[in-house]
Computed example of a mutant assay.
Amino acid sequence: MTESDWVVGDRDRLTFDAFCDTHEKAWIGFARARLRDDAAAHAVVELAKVRVWEEWTRILRAKIPPSHAWAILKEEIGASLAGMMMNGEPLPTQPSVPGWVHSVRTAAERAQHLMETQGGNDQLYAALRRLSERRHDVIVLRYLLDLSDEQIADYLGTTQANVRSTVSQALDRLAASLGGRRGAGR
């Protein structure tokens, strides 16, 4: 290996580390929301980071690198849940309504998206679980992790307009599930 090979390798590692520093908070937050366990979330993110590093040169050539890393994270979360099932471990449950349900309700009500809904927090949590994977992801990324539409679009490999549309659809579904009307009084 020549000296220039080392420099390129170091530069790639620095770029990778900066990329991970930028996205790790969102990755951990999302993994925590799915796995309901801080230690499991951190472990899954570490596994995802190893895979992202293994594919780093390919990811850097991608049009939207964060979306490739996001796909790897979701695969690792799925593998973790599958591993729990195969080992006979109980899947993560939440004995009470998680705090992020309150965040979603507060943010949605503030935005007048779930006006006049009749459901309580337990019903909202159940309705969130019934959303499609993409709609659920967008709701968690926007309202729990407080990411911008631009950041969400990068993670999901889509446009900001599509993110806004998906949020709108998700909020419509939530309102319908809770027996309310979306946007009353807007």
Rank of each mutant, 00 (worst) to 15 (best):
3 E>A: 11
4 S>T: 14
4 S>M: 12
8 V>L: 12
8 V>M: 09
10 D>I: 12
10 D>Y: 13
11 R>E: 13
13 R>E: 11
13 R>A: 07
14 L>K: 15
19 F>S: 09
21 D>G: 04
21 D>A: 10
22 T>Q: 12
23 H>D: 03
23 H>R: 04
24 E>K: 05
26 A>C: 03
28 I>Y: 03
30 F>V: 04
31 A>Q: 05
36 R>I: 09
36 R>S: 09
38 D>W: 12
40 A>Y: 08
42 H>Y: 08
47 L>D: 14
48 A>M: 11
49 K>R: 13
53 W>A: 06
54 E>T: 07
55 E>L: 10
55 E>K: 14
57 T>N: 10
60 L>F: 07
61 R>N: 11
64 I>A: 08
64 I>Y: 10
64 I>Q: 12
74 K>Y: 13
74 K>P: 10
76 E>W: 02
76 E>F: 01
76 E>A: 03
79 A>D: 10
80 S>D: 10
84 M>E: 06
84 M>Q: 14
84 M>D: 03
85 M>A: 14
85 M>Q: 06
87 N>K: 14
89 E>F: 00
89 E>S: 09
92 P>H: 13
92 P>A: 05
94 Q>V: 03
94 Q>S: 09
96 S>I: 05
97 V>K: 00
97 V>C: 00
98 P>M: 01
100 W>Q: 05
102 H>Q: 09
104 V>L: 06
105 R>K: 06
109 E>K: 13
112 Q>W: 09
113 H>S: 13
113 H>L: 15
119 G>W: 01
126 A>I: 00
126 A>M: 00
130 R>M: 03
135 R>E: 14
136 H>P: 04
138 V>K: 11
138 V>P: 06
139 I>V: 15
142 R>D: 03
142 R>V: 05
143 Y>V: 01
144 L>E: 05
145 L>T: 04
145 L>S: 02
150 E>Y: 06
153 A>E: 05
153 A>V: 06
158 T>E: 08
162 N>C: 06
164 R>L: 07
165 S>A: 11
169 Q>L: 08
170 A>C: 11
172 D>E: 08
172 D>A: 14
172 D>N: 15
176 A>T: 09
180 G>N: 12
183 G>C: 04
184 A>Q: 12
184 A>E: 11
185 G>L: 08
